[in-house]
Design a protein around this nucleic acid. Structure first.
Ligand SMILES: [Mn+2]
Ligand SMILES: [Mn+2]
Ligand SMILES: [Mn+2]
Ligand SMILES: [Mn+2]
Lengths: 142, 142
DNA sequence: TTTTAAAGTTAGTCAAGGCTAAATTGATTT
DNA sequence: AAATCAATTTAGCCTTGACTAACTTTAAAA
């Protein structure tokens, strides 16, 4: 028999959703490394109390997440001390900050209110492919 | 003392992330009702085997999710029978399908490859505010 | 230097959303 | 009518990401 794609177009939605689940698995990590980078830049160090405040979660939640990030090699931390990005964390943070900036600027450039753009960009950034990002960049600078 | 917003701009990022977490809590529900609607339209009924295939998850996962959707009033189902949308489910499905369409068309309209647009739209749709959606619509039809 | 307050940690709980393996039910063939 | 196969359900497990409450450590005030 073979390829039935022509007659019965295979609904290969599955790939699309697999990628979506992948993106979700990376979201919290991406937002954390970006925020840790911001805190180091703005305040000289990243304390968990500041992360908790900015994310609007409890200190316990931050603690859990930092342990996971450490396990995955994105940060280092010692008890009761502040948090540092590893090389790997730094690299990811940089990429995410840049991507976030492009998405935000794009939204504003097409006429979305900056306040709204801030909200939407925080979610959209994690679902934008490289290709789309390049188009956003180009559109924004016209 | 009072309002220190002017001197030390309060990082009210917390609101942004709260909304992001909210969106995530709704994502699976949104994709399910939309897909159930699609299946009913295309195949006459929504069976869990079809949902499992299209989402690329196991039958057990579909079962869990359908129970949750039922608990939350979006679908009805009877053992070993197909799945139906409630009024509430129908309404949400319609809204999501429309939103999905707008996001997809917008991406294509600014020059993104349809295949890529399909991937990205599946994630982006859940993070687009009403305001942004209106702008997408307007931009796409120019 | 002691006391107190803030920050961080630990323990235990929960829901969502995945999985596998095994049991059950319904539909199709023989 | 039985046997078989496909679909569905159930049971049990796991990780993530959230919470509260209680405890410990560090830093700041008295
Ligand atoms: Mn971000
Ligand atoms: Mn984000
Ligand atoms: Mn969709
Ligand atoms: Mn989607």
């Amino acid at each position: 028999m073979g390829d039935d794609t022509a007659v019965n177009p295979r609904h290969n939605k599955a790939e699309v959703f697999a990628r979506l689940r992948d993106a979700h698995a990376r979201e919290v990590t991406e937002d954390y490394v970006e925020m840790i980078g911001d805190l180091i830049a703005e305040e000289g160090e990243a304390r968990s109390v500041a992360l908790a405040e900015r994310f609007g979660v409890t200190a316990a939640t931050v603690n859990n997440t930092i342990k996971r990030l450490e396990r995955d090699g994105f940060v280092t931390s010692r008890p009761y001390r502040s948090i540092f990005l590893t090389e790997k964390g730094e690299t990811l943070a940089k990429k995410c900050r840049e991507r976030h900036r492009i998405v935000y600027n794009f939204l504003v450039s097409i006429g979305i209110d900056p306040e709204i753009a801030e909200f939407d960009a925080e979610g959209i950034e994690h679902h934008v492919s490289e290709e789309t990002l390049r188009v956003f960049e180009k559109v924004a600078k016209t």
